[in-house]
Design a protein around this nucleic acid. Sequence first.
DNA 1: GCATAGTTCAAACGGTCGTTTGAACAGGAG
DNA 2: CTCCTGTTCAAACGACCGTTTGAACTATGC
Lengths: 221, 221
Amino acid sequence: MPERAVAGGKENSVETPVESTRERLLNVAEQRFGEGGYEGTSLRAITVAAAANIAAVNYHFGSKEALLRAAVARAMAPVNTERRRRLDQLEANGQPNPEQLIRAFVEPGLDLVLRHGERGAVVARFIGRIAFDPSQRIRELYAAESDPIEARYLSALQAALPHATPEAVAFGYVNMLGLLALHQSQALSRAPGLEDAENSGKLAENLVAFLVAAFDRGLRA
Amino acid sequence: MPERAVAGGKENSVETPVESTRERLLNVAEQRFGEGGYEGTSLRAITVAAAANIAAVNYHFGSKEALLRAAVARAMAPVNTERRRRLDQLEANGQPNPEQLIRAFVEPGLDLVLRHGERGAVVARFIGRIAFDPSQRIRELYAAESDPIEARYLSALQAALPHATPEAVAFGYVNMLGLLALHQSQALSRAPGLEDAENSGKLAENLVAFLVAAFDRGLRA
DNA sequence: GCATAGTTCAAACGGTCGTTTGAACAGGAG
DNA sequence: CTCCTGTTCAAACGACCGTTTGAACTATGC
């Protein structure tokens, strides 16, 4: 009766390992949550698209919110890892300038699309939407996932912008976060047939230039 | 049985005319929709807080979405009017510069808080949240309300930034829109007890400075 | 073979959703 | 007073929500 592939089925292509129910749920969750938001997406819509039973969500995750939490954690892990790596590298080479710090923050969030095509765009949109979900509880789910690295960025930015007050640095950081989330959430509605990689590269460059100018000359007390 | 004030009741203060059911519904709607988003807010939560019957929503507006549409239209009307007024004034005095155009766009959206206190902050948060609601249909409700003026701003910005390509101008406009909505949606969580007006004034100045720097030097092809 | 742990399933749970109904209530016009 | 229009009300509608249940299936270890 179940029509989906079974582990070890020889008819599958060589390169695509069969996804587990858990993986399919996470994949569909980030696609649908990113499309309609948390409240606007039902578990039934997710499980139908994932060819899974509704009870599978509670079996694998425990609740709808726990599914979202797992999806956020999985989606943000590589971004956070890359941001940490870049921060480590920058700080090892002395005092980084604002542009280097902005790149270290923005590019990992947009390279998702650049390096993983439409799949990466789905992840980017998901992250961008969750970061500014209407519900505060959902936003805190995102914040909890990027909390530890936020403090590092703030102090590094402060050191790179000695003329700016802490309030101004925090203001710039919030704006950087917001603009990144904005363009992430629009990752799929931009040029939906052209070269994703090329467009994302240009977008990242434009966004960095925009932010660098604003940080260098637009922060006041 | 109904405990709310009745028209002409002498116990009411002189300055507060009694609100109609329709007005109470709109007031509570922009408060709750701005707090939990469209999907995250039920009509029952709104009608209970507004001391109205559930059927009153369908009587006065027709549906939940029609209530939201009416609230969006009412909230944005004064902002759009003020933006049009400023644009008219600027264009009457010759070619405006980018800072003047940015002020004409940003300040009407934040002066809500400056001039109407907590009530204005509720409206600002409502607008900011709806502008970037997860559901595209809701976002289009906002877009439809600010559509006609958007074209004027884009061409005025293009004229003020002759060195920038149309794509760069559009990119800057989207960023301005996004940052304004971001700070509008945070209107109530910032300094909840201090002088709203003073904080909003500073915020507007900081945001204008941030955007002017980014527009002047951060837009490339 | 049998037992066992991991996973999936259809079905149902109670609750809440947006919407609709039809009666009741108001108040001015004739 | 009667009529009429506008408004409010309790109650119910069917649909959908997240969650739970307990049986059925699968695969591995003995």
